[in-house]
C-alpha cells in the first residue's frame, strides 16, 4: 500500500507550505492594538471545559481589562439553555465545543451576525454560511495506530477499508462520543444511509473493542488491546506529551475527501440579546489573533483556523486535510445517526 507515504508527503508539503507562508505573509494582525475594555463585562456560556479555556479567559481580562463571567456546561446543554432563555438570555457569547450546538442556536434565530471582516480570516468551510457563528479551532478525525504492531504501509487511505476481515479484533471505537457520531453523520451524508449502515455492520462484524472515551481508546492501543482506533487527532499527541515524548501510538490521516476525514470546529456566536455585543465581538476578534490561535496549538494541540498559523509540527497542515463536506451545518441531523447506531446495535 502506498497511502501512508502519501500522507507523509502531504504532511511534509504542508510544513513546507506553512514555512513558506510564515515567511511570505508575516501575520500582520498580531501588531493590531488590543482594545481597552476596562469596566466592561462579558458573560460567556462556555461548552469548553474550564480546565482547557479557563486560563484563556483570564488572559483576555489581563490584556483588555474586561471582566469575564463564565458559565461552564456541556455545549448541547448550554445550547438548550439558550433555546429556553430565548431573547432573555444573559449570555453575551456562546463558546461551543462543536458546530452542532452552534447550528441549533443559529437555527432558532437567536444569534446576531458576526462582523464580516473579523471572521473573514477563517476559511468559509469553518463558519456559518449566514455569518452567525465562526469556528475558532479545528479537530480532525484520524486513525490512531500502534507504531509497534502496525506499519504505516498497512494503513488504507480510506476508512471504508476497515470492514475488511484483516482488521478483526484489532479496532477500538467510541460509539458514544459526539465526534464519532458527527463522523457517522458525515458518512450518511456522503455515502447514503444504506452504505453507512453497511459500514457500521462491517465494523461490528470485526468485533471492535468499545471504549468509554477517546483517551481510553488511545491508551488501549498503547496497552496492546487493539491496534487501531477512530479518534480525534489530539489524543495521541496529548498522551505522547504526557509520557514525555516517547509513545507507541501515532496518527494516520485519511485521504482528502475520504468520508473518514472530518474537520469539526469549536466556535463562537453572539446572541442577538447580548447586553454588550461590542465586547463579545472584541472577544471573537481576540480569539482569532495569531498569538491566541498559537496558544490553542500549544495548549491543546488543536488546529488553528486562521491561515498562516502553524499547527503542531507532528501534524499535517489543515490546508491539506479536506473533508468531503463543505458545510458543517449539515451535520445537524444527529438524531438520525443515533437511530442508525441503535438500529445496528453499536449503541444500546
Amino acid at each position: 500500500m502506498v497511502r501512508r507515504p502519501a500522507a507523509v508527503l502531504a504532511a511534509t508539503l504542508g510544513l513546507v507550505m506553512i514555512a513558506g507562508g510564515v515567511a511570505a505573509q508575516s501575520p500582520a494582525p498580531s501588531a493590531a492594538p488590543l482594545p481597552d475594555l476596562t469596566g466592561r463585562t462579558l458573560t460567556i456560556y462556555s461548552g469548553r471545559s474550564e480546565e482547557l479555556v479557563g486560563p484563556l479567559f483570564e488572559r483576555f481580562t489581563a490584556e483588555t481589562g474586561a471582566q469575564v463571567e463564565v458559565r461552564y456546561g456541556e455545549s448541547a446543554e448550554l445550547a438548550s439553555l439558550l433555546l429556553e432563555e430565548g431573547d432573555r438570555s444573559p449570555a453575551d457569547l456562546f463558546f461551543a465545543q462543536d458546530a452542532g450546538a452552534l447550528g441549533a442556536v443559529a437555527a432558532a434565530g437567536l444569534f446576531a451576525p458576526l462582523d464580516g471582516p473579523t471572521i473573514a480570516v477563517v476559511p468559509a468551510a469553518y463558519r456559518a454560511t449566514d455569518g452567525t457563528w465562526t469556528g475558532i479551532t479545528g479537530r480532525v478525525r484520524v486513525l490512531a495506530y500502534s507504531t509497534e504492531r502496525v506499519t504505516p504501509e498497512e494503513l488504507p487511505g480510506t476508512i471504508v477499508a476497515f470492514t475488511d476481515p484483516t482488521w478483526k479484533g484489532r479496532i477500538g471505537w467510541v460509539p458514544t462520543n459526539a465526534s464519532f457520531q458527527a463522523f457517522v453523520t458525515e458518512l450518511r451524508l456522503v455515502l447514503g444511509d444504506d452504505a453507512a449502515r453497511a459500514w457500521l455492520e462491517g465494523i461490528l462484524a470485526n468485533e471492535p473493542v468499545v471504549y468509554e472515551g477517546n483517551t481510553q481508546a488511545v491508551e488501549g492501543i498503547a496497552a496492546g488491546e487493539v491496534d487501531v482506533a477512530f479518534v480525534n487527532h489530539y489524543y495521541a499527541i496529548r498522551l505522547a506529551d504526557e509520557a514525555g515524548g516517547e509513545y507507541p501510538v501515532a496518527n494516520h490521516f485519511f485521504d482528502a475527501a475520504d468520508p473518514g476525514t472530518l474537520v469539526n470546529v469549536a466556535g463562537a456566536g453572539i446572541p442577538a440579546s447580548a447586553d454588550d455585543a461590542d465586547v463579545a465581538g472584541a472577544f471573537v476578534a481576540w480569539l482569532l489573533r495569531p498569538e491566541i490561535q498559537a496558544w490553542f496549538v500549544g495548549a491543546e494541540s488543536e488546529y488553528p483556523l486562521v491561515a498562516g498559523i502553524p499547527a503542531d509540527p507532528r501534524l499535517p497542515a489543515i490546508e491539506t486535510i479536506r473533508s468531503p463536506l463543505d458545510d458543517l451545518g449539515r451535520l445537524a441531523d444527529l438524531a438520525g445517526t443515533i437511530a442508525l447506531l441503535q438500529e445496528v446495535g453499536a449503541l444500546d
Binding site: A76, S80, G100, Q181, A335, I338, D348
Partner: peptide, 20 residues
C-alpha cells in the same frame, strides 16, 4: 455504564437532537 434507560434517552434527545 451504558444502560439504556429513559433518563439517558432524554439526555440524548436534549443533547444531540436539541428536541425539547
Amino acid at each position: 455504564l451504558r444502560y439504556d434507560s429513559l433518563a439517558r434517552a432524554i439526555y440524548t434527545q436534549v443533547r444531540s437532537a436539541f428536541d425539547r
